[in-house]
Every structure is written in C-alpha cells, then in structure tokens.
Simulated assay, not measured.
Amino acid sequence: MKQIRVYNKVFRIEKTVYSIQGVHLPLPVSYRQMAFFVGTLMVMVVLNKFPPLSWVDYFLIKFIGIPALVAWFFTRKTLDGKAPHRFLMRVIEHFFSPHHFARYQEIARPKNHVYVYEGEVTYRKSGGDTQ
C-alpha cells in the first residue's frame, strides 16, 4: 500500500490574539483557548453560587487559575490520540450505546434472562481419582 502525504495542516494557521482592547496579553492566545477559558469561566461563575465553591475565597484560583488550566489542558493534551473533549464525548456515547451487535445491527435482547440447555450437559469431576 502506498502512502500519500497530505499537507493540510501546513496551511491551517490558527488565529492568535496578542492584545484585547489595547491591553497586551502576557502570552499569545488562540481563539480556541479563549473559548475554553471563557466557557470554563462561565461554569465557575455558576458553580460559585453553590456551597462547595462558594466557601473558597481564592478569587485568582477560581476565576483565573482553573479556567487557564482547563484551556491549556483541552488545547494542548491528547487522550488516545484525540482532543480531550472529543474523547470524553466518545466515552459517553459508548456508555449509552447498545453493546450487542450482529453485522453492525443491534440485537434484540430477550426480556427474561433464563437460559435452558436442551440435551445432555457433560462435565468432568475434579478430584484425585485417576484411572
């Protein structure tokens, strides 16, 4: 089999933000990183209303550190060769999908799980009797 090289990733340049409203950022940030940061920030604002997080008074950790860590993890790391959010979606999809297939079609499972063996069932007794 001959492998054909494709250079699509060379021409996909990720857009980067260097400053927001004239304020220079310490590190250049991609749009994808910004989306993960803002999404996690919104989740943290909502979770801040509930007791476990509302008791913690570390503003920088809750609203800067955790969103920055999530943005870094979801844009830089891979799990099983996939982006972490895509990996988690596939795990959840696998959990809820039927697990019994025959020729890629779902098998109808019987309601009662009573198995009846027709015919003679043979087995070997374990023990020290050898003849």
Rank of each mutant, 00 (worst) to 15 (best):
residue 122 T to Y: 14
residue 70 V to L: 10
residue 29 V to H: 02
residue 10 V to M: 08
residue 95 F to L: 07
residue 101 F to I: 05
residue 106 E to N: 15
residue 113 H to A: 12
residue 7 Y to K: 12
residue 13 I to H: 15
residue 123 Y to G: 15
residue 1 M to T: 13
residue 12 R to D: 11
residue 49 K to F: 14
residue 29 V to P: 05
residue 107 I to L: 10
residue 104 Y to E: 12
residue 92 I to N: 07
residue 6 V to F: 14
residue 75 T to N: 08
residue 45 V to E: 01
residue 19 S to N: 09
residue 6 V to S: 10
residue 42 M to H: 09
residue 60 L to A: 08
residue 39 G to Q: 12
residue 32 R to G: 09
residue 33 Q to W: 12
residue 119 G to W: 02
residue 122 T to R: 15
residue 11 F to K: 15
residue 21 Q to F: 13
residue 31 Y to I: 09
residue 85 H to E: 05
residue 125 K to V: 15
residue 54 S to N: 06
residue 90 R to P: 01
residue 51 P to Q: 06
residue 122 T to V: 11
residue 43 V to A: 10
residue 127 G to S: 01
residue 34 M to P: 02
residue 26 P to D: 04
residue 85 H to W: 10
residue 37 F to E: 01
residue 57 D to H: 14
residue 114 V to P: 00
residue 84 P to A: 07
residue 32 R to D: 09
residue 25 L to I: 14
residue 15 K to C: 10
residue 17 V to K: 10
residue 126 S to I: 09
residue 106 E to Y: 05
residue 52 P to D: 00
residue 5 R to N: 11
residue 40 T to D: 02
residue 21 Q to L: 14
residue 104 Y to A: 15
residue 32 R to C: 14
residue 10 V to G: 12
residue 81 G to F: 10
residue 79 L to W: 05
residue 27 L to S: 12
residue 117 Y to D: 04
residue 34 M to Y: 08
residue 4 I to N: 11
residue 103 R to T: 12
residue 42 M to G: 15
residue 16 T to F: 03
residue 62 K to I: 03
residue 38 V to R: 07
residue 122 T to H: 04
residue 47 L to G: 07
residue 85 H to R: 11
residue 7 Y to N: 09
residue 30 S to C: 12
residue 33 Q to C: 08
residue 103 R to Y: 04
residue 78 T to R: 10
residue 59 F to I: 13
residue 101 F to S: 13
residue 43 V to K: 06
residue 127 G to E: 02
residue 75 T to Q: 03
residue 119 G to I: 07
residue 121 V to G: 03
residue 68 A to N: 02
residue 72 W to I: 09
residue 15 K to I: 04
residue 111 K to P: 02
residue 20 I to D: 02
residue 84 P to N: 10
residue 67 P to D: 00
residue 2 K to D: 02
residue 40 T to H: 02
residue 67 P to S: 04
residue 43 V to E: 02
residue 124 R to S: 12
residue 7 Y to G: 08
residue 53 L to D: 01
residue 43 V to F: 04
residue 55 W to R: 05
residue 116 V to D: 03
residue 34 M to N: 06
residue 45 V to Y: 08
residue 47 L to K: 01
residue 85 H to C: 09
residue 120 E to R: 09
residue 28 P to M: 14
residue 27 L to N: 08
residue 94 H to C: 05
residue 10 V to P: 00
residue 19 S to F: 09
residue 53 L to N: 00
residue 114 V to F: 11
residue 101 F to V: 15
residue 66 I to C: 07
residue 95 F to M: 11
residue 67 P to R: 01
residue 90 R to I: 04
residue 5 R to G: 09
residue 113 H to E: 14
residue 45 V to H: 08
residue 44 M to H: 10
residue 129 D to A: 08
residue 106 E to W: 03
residue 68 A to W: 04
residue 44 M to L: 08
residue 64 I to Q: 02
residue 61 I to D: 00
residue 110 P to K: 04
residue 21 Q to A: 03
residue 129 D to Y: 15
residue 17 V to C: 11
residue 26 P to K: 14
residue 106 E to M: 07
residue 109 R to S: 06
residue 24 H to T: 11
residue 36 F to E: 08
residue 85 H to Y: 13
residue 102 A to H: 09
residue 39 G to D: 04
residue 2 K to Q: 10
residue 2 K to H: 06
residue 119 G to P: 00
residue 50 F to T: 15
residue 36 F to G: 04
residue 106 E to P: 08
residue 65 G to T: 00
residue 126 S to F: 06
residue 90 R to T: 10
residue 84 P to C: 08
residue 12 R to Y: 06
residue 63 F to G: 05
